[in-house]
Design a protein around this nucleic acid. Sequence first.
DNA 1: TCGTTTTTTAAGTTAAATTTAAGAAAGTTG
DNA 2: CAACTTTCTTAAATTTAACTTAAAAAACGA
Lengths: 222, 222
Amino acid sequence: MRVLVIEDEHKIAASIKRGLEQENFTVDLAHTAERGIDLALGEEYDIIVLDRLLPGMEGVEIVKTIREEEIHTPILFLTARGQLDDKVEGLNAGADDYMVKPFAFSELIARIRALTRRPQKSVGQTLVVEDLTLDTQSFDVERGGTKISLSSKEFSLLEYLMHHPNKILSKDQIINHIWNYDADVLPNSVEVYIKHLRDKIDKGYKSSLIHTIRGFGYKIGK
Amino acid sequence: MRVLVIEDEHKIAASIKRGLEQENFTVDLAHTAERGIDLALGEEYDIIVLDRLLPGMEGVEIVKTIREEEIHTPILFLTARGQLDDKVEGLNAGADDYMVKPFAFSELIARIRALTRRPQKSVGQTLVVEDLTLDTQSFDVERGGTKISLSSKEFSLLEYLMHHPNKILSKDQIINHIWNYDADVLPNSVEVYIKHLRDKIDKGYKSSLIHTIRGFGYKIGK
DNA sequence: TCGTTTTTTAAGTTAAATTTAAGAAAGTTG
DNA sequence: CAACTTTCTTAAATTTAACTTAAAAAACGA
């Protein structure tokens, strides 16, 4: 899956790139509008992620230019809070979806996946690890038939773990996926959330599903 | 109930929009074929009303394009008198019904209602959740046999919730379904309407039907 | 048009989730 | 085992989300 990211703030761009690459995407960066348009016209991408505010050229202009060249690659528009009018403007110009900055990685991934498998209807996916199930659509979580209620961060963390069963995920990886890209969270926060999850999904059950791999991270599985 | 109207004559389009909104439909307009297709693929509608004659692209082409993308939303085809051949052509392409312009509003409404209740739910235009019932035809709402009167937005919101019992619907989803796509409503509006609904359908009853799932949205159910 | 109802916005309150911090426990290493 | 590092645990502080109320704006009906 090839992604073009057009974003002038190098820090944000690099962070998006890193995150997407962890998800196995191939990412090209463009830091200027001109370079972005060049790449969009010259290469074939599965999706374009485009910042609204670029020096020299409005994101909306870029969308128009690209669409005029008959390039129909899905475009995900990034916009800063408080510029919601851009939503309409951007969508009218031919963008396919928009996202308000700052955003969490998991959200970016979700939207990219939604756009690239469009126009398929989004059907809820149920993740299963042993007797633990999680429905990404209804947000229902159950272990052995018993409903478990999670807070939003707890849910995101569990979803991330269950997307990669038996794979070790480091605290850094977790932070990069669950928190906003500009958030400055300590690894200790992850530990706290792991503790919350363990209290809710492992406590009182014969076998634990969440495992600590000291020095590396956590994994979910038998 | 969400409707997409693809019609290049602004005056007619606006008039249809106005009329449908009086009937409690939520209406999106597209004045070009491209925009219409974009919206049809990107958003979820209950029905699409499509003019036959659009500059640049035949209505029949649009129907084909939409159906090719596996979108099975009912399509009502508008055609001018003297082009009755279009009827066959349009229906062959995948449209569900056709109407000759000019038409009376009551007829449009009638056909839309006929089309939207078509797929097997001809029996139940009455939604039921526990002792709460809602009749989508007559707009009657009752809880435990007692009639409840709702405003149009309140009704739409309750109808949307009851269409998906026990499913969590986010404020964003609610806004996208109840309001026009370019409406700029704050999530707070949803909260206010939820409060209104609760005052009317939950207050004074032993069990509450509307539930908040903090961080995710609302759901209706036991 | 005027009064009424509905819809939307705004601000203040309450409740819950999130984050931080600090000490305890449990591994690791020489 | 002793010193060190990492993780766990708890609780308080902070931040955010939702609720509520009321007033402003818009739509509607007489």
